[in-house]
Design a protein around this nucleic acid. Structure first.
Length: 207
DNA sequence: AATGCGATTCTCT
DNA sequence: GAGAATCGCATTT
């Protein structure tokens, strides 16, 4: 059974939420389709103290306003002209912070996930393509049909939510530096990326 | 109106 | 490991 995570889960520090989101289940439903992935890699962005966060220093522009809203909404933005990144807002309202979902492991809806990424069924994929399905923040957006249309959308909704499996699953958590934020001075060294050790769908491994 | 770049990915080498 | 793709949006002129 999958149990949907509620407000209280996300109404906490983004670093705690990011860590605890590992092993949870991302559920995406649309057009009678059900896609499910296990979250294996996340990053926290904490605006108040984090130069890598879009909302650092109380910065407010139309694009980043979702960061200031109540927890449990999606913050989806476009990047590099052709990709998207998907975050979940955490913490108290007006405290800009969130968690970037960087990678999931495909669990259910494999054909749909494969078609969204490579226009092929799952069985037609090569090994390399399977590992490439959802092993990155923008890859998983393509695979799970997440785009700006879901920006500010509730993640307690039927079309998009996060749940937990009943039952115990053990894994080791690795903490490391976040990816792609080398411009952010001291913040680039914060160990706010979390991933499941030895999971094949993690986007970048540490040395 | 013009400029510059990014919480990335893909395709080479 | 380097370079390109490609454009919305914030910033500068």
């Amino acid at each position: 059974m999958i149990e949907k995570l509620g407000r209280n889960f996300f109404e906490r520090d983004g670093r705690v939420v990011a860590k605890e989101l590992l092993g949870k289940i991302l559920v995406r439903k649309y057009e009678e389709k059900v896609l499910i992935g296990k979250i294996v890699e996340t990053e926290a962005y904490i605006g108040e103290i984090d130069k890598a966060c879009h909302a650092y220093g109380g910065r407010k522009t139309p694009k980043i306003m979702p960061l200031y809203s109540t927890c449990g909404i999606a913050y989806v933005y476009s990047i590099y002209g052709m990709y998207h990144c998907f975050n979940v807002i955490t913490g108290e309202e007006n405290d800009p912070q969130g968690v970037l979902i960087r990678a999931v492991e495909p669990i259910e809806g494999l054909d749909e996930i494969s078609k969204n990424r490579f226009k092929k069924t799952f069985n037609e994929l090569k090994k390399k393509e399977i590992l490439n399905l959802t092993s990155g923040p923008s890859k998983l957006c393509i695979a799970f049909n997440i785009d700006k249309g879901l920006n500010t959308h509730s993640i307690f909704s039927d079309g998009l939510y996060i749940g937990s499996f009943s039952g115990i699953e053990k894994f080791e958590i690795v903490k490391s530096k976040r990816i792609g934020i080398d411009y952010s001075e001291e913040a680039k060294d914060f160990l706010w990326r979390y991933y499941i050790k030895n999971n094949k769908f993690v986007s970048v491994l540490d040395k």
